[in-house]
Design a protein around this nucleic acid. Structure first.
Lengths: 216, 216, 216, 216
DNA sequence: TATGAATGAGAATTCATTCAT
DNA sequence: GATGAATGAATTCTCATTCAT
């Protein structure tokens, strides 16, 4: 579920032959989308500083100068990616509230998230920084939102520990998500690296259960 | 537990008052150590590409050219940091085996690790890459070692689940460690950002308990 | 006979008046040519190590970064110069075979070669090395070709001495060419430094005659 | 016949164990000599700019800083080499006058010169420049002296051509010497590269004969 | 809208030289 | 006299960005 459509296999070079129709008129939006897609992948995997605008443009099969045309700057492109990712995640995780307090439902929801390449990239991107302080609040805001949703999804429940304690525990759940993403991105640590959604669902449910629905 | 002493806050400019005596002869080792220290911090927090050799040298209060003198290249310095960190962690986590199967002991041990700035930097560094493929095996090797130790620390126990399942669960515990480190590095996500060792110990013990020892 | 035209005195700064029109689109080849020209002169006269890419770019009236754009590296530019020079010389000296055995024809041909600034630069460049071993065969190959042509131009003749002896003598003729070039480059050794083509033709014919055709 | 004694094989690394006696006192002169020797070789073969003071010091088995101690600067060391070489050559070639007008004597004398590694280095060094204009006159002076000696060695003779014409021819003889040296330094052009003194003597005599003792 | 060409700032690295034992 | 340590000036190269078609 990328910002803009197309894209089947991973990192499609998007050759010029891709768009035989609509040669000029209105092709701007398409180009913009292609750039957003490849930028997200590059930024997520290599980090902001290690990514070259030329890398991105080449991946998108598009001239470099167009990055500045459509996004003003590399920084601007990064921000656009971040915004897109945040929107996506806010939307996707809106469902968390509906999951109710059942830990295994949260667990398998998380497992699904982590097993998808697209969502992995999204999480990864949230950990990347361009060095610009302005984007920090965006990132932190999303994390806060997310952990609050998670806390309140189970918070009505039982023992009702101190709010902060519950929030901390929710953030630990979040930590697992990021930790798994980050370790899986390293490629090479088996069995985690190639664990399927099914492999992850069980352990994650246990984990959520232990942290949030706490006896103790 | 850095290579060379001092170091309290982040990036100490190494004022002249740091070491008033022993000015030239034989001061090489000290300089090397200062560079390793500031490099570790910079690489861990900003990543390899975003870190400038000048940043590092300035932090260490030392001439830039000395980086090449002592480490051949920026890349060489990074590798040296990685090696140091790995040695440290292998050593530190050697104790894991002795922790026995008690989850709360593992939990509070992990809490101590995560609360220390030095160890946070170490974990963070493990996630950074200079782009050189040669360092990948070092990283992965440590992670493998670590997760195996963790698995076998509890493996003797009871039900003895399939080795891979246990390993996966151990790697999920590792994931939390990395996830927490990565989120805490963002600064700004409260209460996680300023949680103390005590705050973390409880939830982490629950987590370890659920993942490793647990009924399942 | 340079890659691109103009060029009278040494190091022409390529004033704006050089090419007022055709400002951007498609000007790449021209720029490449300007760089090749100034590089050849600089490398030939100052040697590889003593030549700065900035020198070359300034001589060509062009931004330094374009050297890397068009030739990848300083080394790449050097190699390109070498290739161009070799092609030129192989072509130019193809005529040697046609000169037949008449020594005065070879002598005056050589005189013409040595008196031309462009060809001097070509010979000089053949003596320069960037330190890269890969270019050695190119150089030696040309010298071999050249001396063989020279040898066989007269070889059909008379006594037909041992092939090696003849080749050695041909290489001595080559040596004179390089020696003269090298000494003339020093500027300051009169009358050699400012000897004209006519001044050189006679002595050189005698020399060729003595070495190659000769009674012996 | 190097500037300072010792030195058996080519490029002896001169290990510290070389001088077991006279540990300190008076070792300065020795060090100076070692440096001059290795500098000459390096400068001759690699050129001034491509040679690092560290190369030289390492070859000599001596600390780098001593170059500045004894010769003030890299430039100073180069000048010292040049002076030494010039003195040597002025002395050695003083004999030319005595050779009389017999071309074969001059030829075989030249052959001896070219076949010796030491003298090759000397000639090579004369073609190297540090970029400092001050050394130009030294070089040119020697060349002038030498060609005049050569001219007057045969000048008394017969036809007595115009002085300039004779001088030019003498300089062409010089050119062969430099040309051969330069081509032999390239290593790889056979048979010239490994021609012995005997191989060279004959052709060179012919050449000298044709150029200087000219019928014509 | 798109593109090749050009630019300038900044990065790592090398190197001659100087300092302080 | 000799040496390891340190320094600052250069040099090559990369890269985001802007220009002119």
């Amino acid at each position: 579920m990328q910002a803009s459509g197309s894209q089947a296999g991973p990192t499609p070079p998007a050759t010029a032959a891709d768009a035989p129709s609509a040669s000029r008129r209105g092709s701007g939006a398409r180009t913009r989308g292609l750039l957003l897609d490849s930028a997200r992948r590059r930024f997520a995997h290599d980090g902001y500083a290690a990514t070259t605008v030329r890398d991105i443009a080449d991946d998108a099969g598009v001239n470099v100068a167009l990055i500045n045309r459509y996004f003003q700057s590399k920084e601007g492109l990064f921000e656009a990616c971040l915004k897109a990712v945040i929107d996506e995640l806010v939307h996707t995780t809106g469902a968390v509230g509906d999951l109710g307090r059942a830990p295994e439902r949260i667990g398998s929801y998380a497992a699904g998230l982590l097993a998808s390449d697209d969502h992995s990239d999204a999480l990864l991107l949230l950990l990347r920084s361009s060095g610009d302080e302005r984007t920090e609040p965006m990132r932190t805001g999303l994390l806060r939102t997310f952990s609050e949703r998670l806390a309140s999804a189970v918070g009505r429940e039982a023992g009702e520990p101190a709010r902060d304690e519950l929030l901390l525990r929710a953030q630990l759940v979040l930590s697992v998500a990021f930790g798994v993403t980050v370790l899986r991105a390293s490629r090479g640590l088996e069995p985690l690296a190639s664990a399927t959604e099914q492999d992850l669902a069980g352990p994650l449910s246990d984990l959520v259960d232990a942290l949030l629905t706490g006896r103790r």
